[in-house]
Every structure is written in C-alpha cells, then in structure tokens.
C-alpha cells in the first residue's frame, strides 16, 4: 500500500528526515516522536506537499508524478489546523472537501448527525474535529493521514474518534500522529521518529520510549492496557 524508500528531507541545511524506509499495508498506525522530530514533515512528504529526495509510492504509484487531484482521491488528510472561522455551513464545508473525490456528502452528514445548515464556527472543538475526519474519509481513500487527531479533545470525543479510526483501519491504512502515548493501547503498530530516522517499534516498552523521548518513563500495567507515566523527579530542582 504505502512504500517509502530512502526518503530524506532538508529544511535549509537542517536534515529533518534521513533515509527513511517504511512499508505498510493496512491497519491503525501511531506515529510518535518528540516535537520537531519530523512527524508532520513525513505526512507532508507522503502527500507530496513539499519537496524531498527518495521515492514514496502509494499503491505502486509514485506520488511525485501524480497530479494533486489524484493524490487527493487516494489520501485523506486531517491537518493540525483548519479554517473553522470561515463562514461556511457543514454542507458547504464537506462539499468543498469532496470536489476531487467520488463520494456522497449526504451519507456523511447523516452519519455525523449535524444539521447541514449549521455554521462550522458554531461547532465545538470535538464536533469540528469529527467533521474534519469525516471530510477526509469522503470517498473512502485507502490511506488516511491524521496530524494529532485527538488534540484538545475530551475523553468521550477521543474515544469516539479512536473507534472511528479503528473501524476504518480494518480495510484501509491509517497513520495518526499521537502525542498521548496512552492511545498507543489502541493501535496496531507504532512508528517512531528519532534523529531523522524512522523505526517500527515491535515492543513499546519503557526502554524504547525513553530512547525516543529522552525522559525516564514508567509503564503501568492494568489488565490488557498499559499506561505511560513520565518520571518528574529532579526536573524541577534542576530549573
């Protein structure tokens, strides 16, 4: 499905991604790493929204050679920031997102349960995030990229979104940038970015997380779930 070969990305002289190689089929993947590790950059490269060296192929097609409209048909993208302040209705917003897709907006509106004439600037943070995810899913693109989909969401909205993504990832590939490491309980696999290198973590243990985040952590087991707690001792005194 997704094949990344020798991907490198420079910002000026700074090399953000160093010969990244990845091959993913389907499922729900969490993308983790420190701030500035290149998570968003990796998503932007996959969508060919920025220049890079190396090749990225989706379903065997090189993204660099695809017109934007073709990429939009096979990749759904949920950005960190969107335009909630534009005076558009829910229907307008979804229709704009469907211009280059073959999908039915009516189904999406029914699924969301929002009134189609409701203005998007009256939606709560959680509702708007659901709208963004729904927009990205119009026409069922086989690859879904999400940049911090659970950011600013309360526990109920987070659970709903995770459920939606889990369901979608049964048939398609979903990659989500995740900062709340406890959400890794619900993913099928984890990709970690560190010093410009990407690595698939087979074991999400404290050792691996400490290496990625440069901080001591404790893992607490509770039934089938594991929780990550950072160790704060000494940090405040050092300040």
């Amino acid at each position: 499905m997704l094949k990344v070969e020798n991907l490198s990305k420079f910002y000026g002289r700074k090399r953000v991604l160093k010969t990244v190689n990845l091959q993913l089929e389907r499922g729900f993947w969490g993308l983790i790493g420190r701030n500035g590790a290149g998570k968003t950059t990796l998503l932007r490269c996959i969508m060919a929204m920025t220049t890079f060296t190396g090749t990225i192929k989706i379903n065997g097609k090189n993204v660099k050679e695809m017109p934007r409209s073709d990429i939009a048909k096979i990749v759904g993208y949920v950005p960190q920031l969107s335009s909630q302040d534009v005076p558009l209705s829910v229907r307008d917003f979804l229709e704009i997102g469907a211009y280059y897709r073959n999908g039915n907006v009516d189904n999406v509106i029914n699924y969301l349960g929002f009134k189609e004439e409701r203005q998007i600037n009256t939606l709560s943070g959680g509702e708007f995030q659901k709208l963004l995810i729904a927009r990205a899913m119009i026409g069922n693109p086989p690859l879904l990229l999400l940049d911090e989909p659970a950011n600013h969401l309360d526990i109920k909205n987070t659970a709903e979104i995770i459920e939606i993504l889990k369901e979608y990832s049964k048939r398609y590939l979903v990659i989500a940038v995740v900062h709340d490491l406890n959400l890794l309980n619900f993913v099928d696999g984890v990709i970690a970015l560190k010093n410009g290198k990407a690595k698939i973590l087979n074991d999400v243990d404290s050792q691996a997380l400490e290496k990625i985040f440069d901080i001591k952590v404790e893992l607490i087991n509770a039934g089938k779930y594991r929780f990550v707690i950072p160790r704060y001792n000494g940090f405040i005194r050092k300040l």
Binding site: M49, S69, S82, S83, I96
Partner: peptide
C-alpha cells in the same frame, strides 16, 4: 468557484483536498 472555495482555506488544506 470551486478554486475560490479551496483557496480561502489554508494552503496545506487546499492542497490535500486536490487543488494545485
């Protein structure tokens, strides 16, 4: 009108939705 609708969104968003 479709271009204009996409252009008023953020650039990155418009690109991801298929607009050059």
């Amino acid at each position: 009108y479709r271009w204009l609708n996409l252009l008023m969104l953020r650039d990155e968003e418009a690109m991801s939705l298929g607009l050059n």
